[in-house]
Structures are given as structure tokens and as C-alpha cells.
């Protein structure tokens, strides 16, 4: 009993898939930008010598690194709106969850990057009269960011994979589109295979870019943090 493959019904839904992919990229991009900014803020707070700043930042980072993303997503989508009395669309819930979640990982990348810079760089900056924030902005971060690029790209790729979870709360991303199309066409095998391949192509290309960049950094003698 050989199965008759038939991709036509799936391909007929190409616009639907394209829209799903666009939404996947949209949620990934949003969470990436917010995650990086928030991650930097968390890292700076965590490195602060004042414990009323460093401790809460450390707490947020640990909680979000130590619980499953899907649990976080459900909490933000089903629990938080009732708690604070606001409506949350699946997109907003996803954006908030994935932003904080990736921020807690980016924060550790930033921290490792900042701490990897030799003490002498701080000395050099302070010796010419720089304030802490000036030294950080002009001297430390530009060097640290370069070392963080590979870890940063790896995290971004992980983030894209994590965004598939948003399909479980019915946001119309690529995986959700697969769900819909397979139910409409009764062709789950072809649908899920096509969608898996689309994910593979996008993520594989991103990984190759990351690999190339890492190689170039390694060749230029740049040390990196992970």
C-alpha cells in the first residue's frame, strides 16, 4: 500500500504559508529587538554594585531561564490579562514572553562579554577622566559586542525556533498555518513536511550566515564569548 503523495493542495495554499512565514518573521524580529535592548538593561542592572538593582535583575534572569517557555507563554496569555485586567492579543503575549525570555539569555551574553574585557581597558578609560557610563559606552561595549556576535546570532536563531510556540495560542504564524491547511486539505503529511522544510531552509540559511561570521571573527583573531 504505497501512499500517493500529492503536494498540489498544499501548494495551492502558498499565500497562506507566505503570510504565516511573514508573521513568524514579525514576531521573531519584534522579540529580537526588544530582547536585545532589555537584555542589555538587565545585564547592566545585574552588574551594578547596588544590590537593590542587581538582585531583582538576577531574579528575572533566573526565573526566565529556569522555566519552560511554553509555561511562560501560557502564563502571559491566560493568567496575566486577568491579573492586571487588560486584553492581550496572542501577538502581544508572545512578544512579551519571547522578549523577556530571550532578554534573560541575552543578558548573560552581555554580561559575559563585558566581563571578558580586561581590567586595563577600564583603567585606561578612567585615567583620562571618563565616567563609568562613558567608559562603558565608548570603550567597553564596542569591544564586548564584537566578542558577543556569535553567541548573539545563536540566540537569535533559537528565538526563531521558540516562536513556533505561539501557534499554540492561535497566532497565525507559519506553524499555525500548517495546522489550518492540514485540516482544510486533509493532507497533514504533505503540509507538515512542506512547513518543516520551509523552517529548515530559513533557519539553515541563518545558521550558515552565523557560521561564516564566526569563522571570519576567529580568523581576525577575535576572541568570543559563549
Amino acid at each position: 500500500m504505497a501512499y500517493q503523495w500529492d503536494f498540489a493542495p498544499v501548494l495551492a495554499n502558498a499565500p497562506f504559508l507566505a503570510e504565516g512565514l511573514a508573521n513568524t518573521l514579525k514576531i521573531t524580529g519584534t522579540a529580537l529587538v526588544c530582547g536585545v535592548v532589555l537584555g542589555l538593561a538587565l545585564a547592566l542592572l545585574r552588574l551594578s554594585p547596588r544590590c537593590f538593582l542587581s538582585w531583582p535583575a538576577g531574579f528575572v534572569i533566573e526565573v526566565f531561564r529556569t522555566t519552560p517557555p511554553l509555561v511562560q507563554l501560557f502564563w502571559f496569555f491566560f493568567a496575566l490579562p486577568i491579573l492586571v485586567g487588560i486584553e492581550m492579543t496572542p501577538f502581544v503575549a508572545g512578544a512579551v514572553t519571547f522578549s523577556i525570555q530571550s532578554a534573560s539569555f541575552f543578558a548573560e551574553v552581555f554580561r559575559a562579554g563585558i566581563q571578558s574585557i580586561e581590567r586595563g581597558q577600564w583603567d585606561g578609560a578612567r585615567a583620562i577622566g571618563m565616567r563609568h557610563d562613558q567608559a562603558l559606552r565608548r570603550i567597553i561595549l564596542p569591544q564586548a559586542v564584537k566578542r558577543m556576535i556569535p553567541a548573539f546570532m545563536e540566540r537569535a536563531i533559537e528565538l526563531m525556533k521558540t516562536t513556533t510556540l505561539i501557534a499554540t495560542i492561535s497566532y497565525a504564524d507559519l506553524l499555525f498555518a500548517a495546522n489550518e491547511i492540514s485540516q482544510k486539505t486533509f493532507r497533514p503529511l504533505e503540509t507538515y513536511t512542506v512547513v518543516a522544510l520551509i523552517y529548515f531552509v530559513v533557519i539553515f540559511l541563518a545558521s550558515q550566515v552565523a557560521r561564516l561570521v564566526e569563522l571570519r571573527l576567529a580568523r581576525s583573531g577575535e576572541s568570543t564569548v559563549h
Binding site: 525556533k161 507538515y192 523552517y199 533557519i203 545558521s207
Partner: peptide, 8 residues
């Protein structure tokens, strides 16, 4: 490695 585990 390059496909999301939920899709798998």
C-alpha cells in the same frame, strides 16, 4: 538542529 522541535 535547524527545525523547531514543535514542528518535529
Amino acid at each position: 538542529r535547524n527545525t523547531p522541535v514543535l514542528v518535529q
